[in-house]
């Protein structure tokens, strides 16, 4: 049994497909590549592939993570070249490495993600910057940012996502697009989507002031580790 982790970048136009579509895409590419897939046990065996932290539709990414099991040894180099030749141009394998079959899944250890939000310059950069600055200051000074959540029984509860915003910065420099950088808690122990934060910023700015429909969201990196001591991933590639 061989276990590999790998990182990949997703660019336009593939950003427009869903997580399920991504899984299907990888599985079909793997089957075309004839790599020796390992299958799960049970009545309906399926290949053992995990993609950490589903990417939302429309979001591009630099360094996403996946994990896969093979029935026979496959070197990380072969994996990249063989699978890479079966992937569309806007999906690129950027690294791969061996994982011991016993270690905790990387996907399960992801606890934060860094997003870059490219803010439109309309009507002009200065105005956009000031609007965004004001909205962000107001948002960050709040003690509670409540997000609605539906339980499986359709019961509605609210959680405070303010602690999930680990860092928020505006990058406003000559010669660079106006950018909002967000480090957000993510993963199975709780997290918040960048789109929810953008929605909140719009509300803080006053409805109609900021048009976020043309903003582009990019996921730069995923992190593991405890609060305060984030480890960038992938660790061993």
């Amino acid at each position: 049994m061989e276990r590999l982790c790998f990182s990949f970048a997703r660019t336009m136009p593939l950003a427009y497909i869903s997580h399920l579509d991504m899984m299907r895409l990888f599985l079909r590419a793997l089957r075309r590549s004839n790599l020796p897939l390992a299958y799960s046990q049970g009545y309906n065996p399926h290949p053992r592939l995990t993609l950490a932290l589903p990417l939302p539709v429309g979001v591009t990414a630099s360094e996403e993570l996946g994990e896969i099991f093979f029935a026979e040894a496959v070197s990380p180099e072969d994996f990249i070249s063989i699978l890479g030749s079966q992937l569309p141009a806007s999906l690129e394998l950027t690294g791969a490495g061996r994982l011991s079959p016993e270690s905790t899944s990387l996907a399960a250890r992801v606890c934060a993600a860094l997003y870059r939000v490219f803010v439109s310059d309309e009507p002009d950069r200065g105005t956009q910057y000031l609007l965004l600055r004001g909205a962000l200051d107001k948002l960050m000074s709040r003690e509670e940012i409540l997000m609605e959540r539906k339980s499986k029984k359709k019961k509605i509860t609210f959680i405070n996502v303010r602690p999930y915003i680990l860092k928020a910065e505006i990058i406003y420099k000559e010669g660079r697009p106006l950018e909002l950088s967000l480090l957000l808690k993510a993963g199975s122990s709780g997290g918040v989507s960048p789109f929810f934060i953008i929605e909140q910023l719009k509300m803080e700015a006053g409805s109609g002031l900021m048009d976020a429909s043309s903003w582009h969201v990019h996921r730069e990196k995923l992190y593991t580790g405890q609060n305060g001591s984030l480890q960038p991933l992938p660790e061993r590639m």
């Binding site: 593939l14 427009y16 497909i17 079909r28 590419a29 429309g58 569309p88 429909s213 043309s214």
Partner: peptide, 16 residues
């Protein structure tokens, strides 16, 4: 436009 429609992949082409 694609950012505003359902299932934008319908209009992308570029498939395998």
């Amino acid at each position: 436009i694609l950012a505003m429609v359902q299932k934008p992949a319908r209009y992308l082409g570029n498939e395998w």
